[in-house]
């Protein structure tokens, strides 16, 4: 996984709440067995049907920070939603609240999801819509989002922050604890089912 320390880039204002993962990437795009190449599925229906949709506007095409409404990433657990956002070039998503599974997936894959209060999100939306060249900085080191006139701290637990800063693979970390897992297995209830 790539390390995440500080990212500065243009932002994309997505003024919708409850953006579910079926919107982020519809099911028909989930059939690939690779881990890349999901960019064409990103917001496919909105990009195809709505000329006003924010990603159809040329001034936002180079955006790398998505500023979204509350409950972003609800619904299906498809990690393809994270991959599609990353394949498009997004490095961070900022919203008032995220769905649990999407948030977990994003932080596993190095797409930084940042929770900020609704009023800060609205200020960022206004600012970016007034000047699409506005740059937004997401600073994981300092746990802070910065834009002209905005300097807003955000919360992220120390462990996840450390893992993202170091770009560490969760599986490799857990495999260091194999002894604890072996030990746990000796204590499991004897009636628990097996599949084979």
């Amino acid at each position: 996984m790539e390390k995440f320390t500080v990212h500065t880039g243009r932002a994309v204002p997505l003024r919708y709440s409850n953006v579910d993962t079926d919107q982020i990437i519809p099911a028909v795009y989930l059939k690939r067995v690779s881990r890349t190449g999901f960019e064409d599925g990103l917001f496919a229906a909105w990009r195809a049907n709505d000329p006003e949709f924010v990603l159809n506007q040329p001034q936002y095409k180079d955006g790398t920070v998505l500023i979204a409404g509350s409950d972003f990433g609800t619904g299906s657990s498809r990690e393809h939603a994270v991959w599609a956002l990353q394949d498009h070039g997004f490095k961070a998503v900022v919203a008032p609240r995220f769905a649990d599974i999407f948030r977990g997936n994003s932080l596993k894959g190095g797409l930084l999801t940042v929770v900020l209060p609704q009023q800060v999100i609205e200020r960022l939306w206004d600012m970016v819509e007034a000047d699409p060249a506005t740059e937004v900085t997401v600073d994981l080191q300092e746990r802070e989002v910065r834009a002209p006139g905005v300097s807003e701290p955000f919360e992220l637990d120390d462990y996840t922050r450390w893992r993202l800063l170091a770009g560490l693979d969760d599986i490799a970390l857990t495999l260091r604890e194999t002894e604890a897992i072996d030990d746990y297995e000796t204590r499991r209830k004897s009636w628990l089912p097996v599949t084979q």
Binding site: E79, V82, I101, G104, N105, K108, I171, T174, T178, I181
Partner: peptide
């Protein structure tokens, strides 16, 4: 429910 990274994690480590 879990994402694919976690699926891999469970496959590898239970």
């Amino acid at each position: 429910g879990i994402g694919t990274s976690q699926v891999e994690h469970v496959l590898a480590t239970q």
